[in-house]
Design a protein around this nucleic acid. Structure first.
Lengths: 210, 210
DNA sequence: TGTACATCAGTGAACGCGCGTTCACTGATGTAC
DNA sequence: TGTACATCAGTGAACGCGCGTTCACTGATGTAC
């Protein structure tokens, strides 16, 4: 698979290559589904450069994958908060945020998986790789939204944090199983979504909303 | 890492090596966490044989991993059904089965992950690898147990299948996230378990049970 | 305006490695007579 | 009971491959004077 050679960057535009490398790595990851298949040489081939050129922008192969993960998580956070902020009612904020989460996982299943599964933030082999602040903030956003529902009287929950954990787990499991087991007779998408979000957030029926 | 050489099998006991290979592969998988690290040579090293010896028992490297997956799933199914069958009340059957599922995932997280994530039964590259009958039967066991709860009047659900899907997704998500994100401030184990099972199966409070 | 030159954005060849797989083989084990 | 031999359970060396990484390099681009 030979890619078209790319034009050499002009002076001072060396950072453009960095973005190209990241984009190629993300594509490669999404196509192969395996972090280990995102090889330095494969990335270079896709970008249209020689392999050593990558070392001007990343210290080693791992750093590329780390950067892809950081990018992906930032994108996920933006998708969630943007969707939630567009709504005003607590119930709709919660549902919109969760829907955005699932949409990201559905549209880029392998990139999603990498973020949550392959790159264990507490990987024993990589102690420096800690759970990013972005992750904490994103989860906190879910907790806050559940709390909004409680305060708004549309959730009978008494523990926003505990419910947020259950919702996150259920959404994550649904997203990964659904994209992985394509032959399973999945019920309509909305139905399972409703069961998970409404049920685990202890939402009262929608009709009761002011 | 040199392993102790093993004794040569006596005649007619060639199949014992097959079992040793499988056990070594399963261990290796559990330790490394990556299917791709279960190399033919690494397995051979661990068993204490030369690499080519494996070809007497498996046609290629992939076949070893496939066999590990089949073994693991059979084990998981047995764990679930055994736990559920030991109970008589529908509520306890459901809870015991789900608890056994989570226990398996907790004790052998990487083997569990391989079964549900890495080895997509509908992998486009391996069309012959279909979702085994064992998988269908195991999920059906969950559906049946939820139905038992409905029939026994301790669940207000009207759709055992749909609820089983949600429960499976939530358990799977909880299992994988919890074993992967060790730094997260997880609530007590039982609490999340209760939220997921009782909530998604629409169980009535335990006190109402006859 | 012309030109020497420093710098930048890369390249090409090479290294050692572990891998899956093949091939021809070996030596202990059991069996036929 | 003794022995020739077929079979079984493996082995050791070798292959070609793609990998991450290193090294010395090149040639276009911009700039100082």
């Amino acid at each position: 698979v030979t890619e078209t050679a790319r034009e050499r960057n002009r002076r001072g535009e060396g950072t453009r290559l960095r973005a190209d490398i990241l984009a190629a790595a993300a594509e490669l990851l999404e196509e192969t589904g395996s972090e280990q298949d995102v090889t330095l040489r494969a990335v270079a081939r896709r970008v249209g450069i020689s392999a050593p050129s990558i070392y001007a922008h990343f210290p080693d192969r791992e750093a590329i994958v780390d950067a892809v993960v950081d990018d992906a998580f930032a994108e996920l956070k933006t998708a969630i908060t943007t969707a939630a902020d567009a709504e005003t009612l607590p119930r709709q904020k919660l549902r919109a945020g969760c829907a955005a989460y699932l949409r990201f996982a559905r549209e880029q299943p392998n990139r999603y998986r990498l973020v949550f599964e392959l790159r264990n933030p507490l990987d024993a082999d990589h102690p420096g790789r800690t759970i990013g602040a972005v992750r904490g903030e994103t989860f906190q956003h879910l907790v806050d939204t559940v709390q909004l529902c409680i305060d708004g009287g549309i959730s009978t929950s008494t523990d926003a944090f505990g419910d947020a954990v259950a919702i996150w787990a259920a959404l994550h499991g649904y997203a990964t199983l659904r994209s992985g087991h394509l032959g399973f007779p999945w019920p309509p998408y909305e139905q399972t979504f409703d069961r998970i979000v409404d049920g685990l957030a202890h939402l009262t029926p929608a009709a009761s909303e002011a």
